[in-house]
């Protein structure tokens, strides 16, 4: 039995013969209460792993949707400390769903790396995805995180060529996050043949599960990606739905939580269809 929640979850998915659904939402978007309510409903709606965005004022690799969600959360008083508390709240009812924090380094640097890792571990956070910490800067957070018992998930991109790939994979743990396009989140979708080829390229060099993200918005796309990868990540489409269900004063409409979880359910359905059609 794998030692980590992430490892166990991928082992379970493999046993079930299907790929996983990873949801991305920004912590505290549109406000801390609504965000916690959505998060609590994700597992039963069909999410297998939860990616929780740590809001940052300057998210350089994200498109307009996720930028705006960060700003909404910050405006409503979200902080890194409250993000960690949000996970603590979630863990009172769910001990199995892996939780991965995703974001940019500065808030963690300012919080203090040692203090952050201790608090993250204490809150049963399982892994970290850091957009602006490539392997060249592994000493900052990657190595300390591994030492603290957290998975550090590396991003690989279409630009990560064969010469560079081994270096990126060397310290990767949990899973590998393949950024399927050269671009920012929520813009366009990659051609599935390109994705398949890239995944084969990565698989030749690692036994870690591979998740694919950027540009996946619909159940059909999710099914397509699930057919070639171990997990599909959906972010901007969910974040857009949060935005679309705010009133003129940026308050959550009563139906917001159900709408978001409804889309999650459809996406999870896409994954299961992919599994059935690929069964020999």
């Amino acid at each position: 039995m794998p030692e980590t929640r992430i490892g166990r979850r991928f082992a379970e998915l493999k046993a079930e013969g299907r790929s996983g659904l990873v949801s991305f939402l920004t912590a505290g978007d549109p406000n801390p209460e609504t965000a916690s309510e959505i998060m609590a409903g994700l597992p039963s709606a069909g999410v297998d792993l939860i990616e929780l965005g740590m809001p940052f004022s300057d998210p350089m690799a994200d498109g307009p949707s996720i930028q705006a969600s960060s700003l909404r959360a910050l405006k409503n008083g979200m902080t890194l400390s409250k993000t960690i508390d949000m996970v603590r709240g979630f863990r009172q009812h769910d001990h199995e769903t892996p939780i991965i924090l995703m974001g940019y380094y500065n808030p963690i640097y300012k919080y203090g790396v040692d203090r952050f890792l201790a608090d993250a571990k204490d809150a049963s956070i399982d892994g970290l995805i850091m957009v602006d910490l490539p392997p060249e800067e592994e000493g900052e957070l990657c190595l300390p995180a591994i030492k603290a018992g957290l998975n550090f998930i590396y991003l690989t991109a279409p630009t990560t060529d064969d010469a560079r790939l081994p270096m990126v994979l060397e310290k990767a743990s949990g899973f590998v996050y393949y950024v399927s396009i050269t671009g920012i989140t929520g813009t366009r979708a990659a051609a599935i043949d390109d994705v398949r080829q890239s995944i084969e390229r990565i698989r030749r060099r690692t036994d870690l599960p591979i998740a694919v993200g950027f540009g996946i918005r619909t159940p059909e796309q999710t099914a397509e990606v699930a057919a070639v990868a171990d997990a599909a990540v959906v972010g901007s489409a969910l974040v857009d739905l949060v935005r679309d269900n705010l009133d003129a004063d940026c308050r959550a409409k009563p139906e917001l939580v159900d709408r978001v979880l409804g889309l999650v359910g459809e996406l999870a359905g896409g994954i299961r269809i992919a599994a059935e059609s690929s069964t020999p």
Partner: peptide, 12 residues
């Protein structure tokens, strides 16, 4: 200093 950029940019 350093190189705190997304993986997509790193090779460039």
């Amino acid at each position: 200093g350093g190189r705190y950029v997304a993986e997509t940019l790193m090779p460039l």
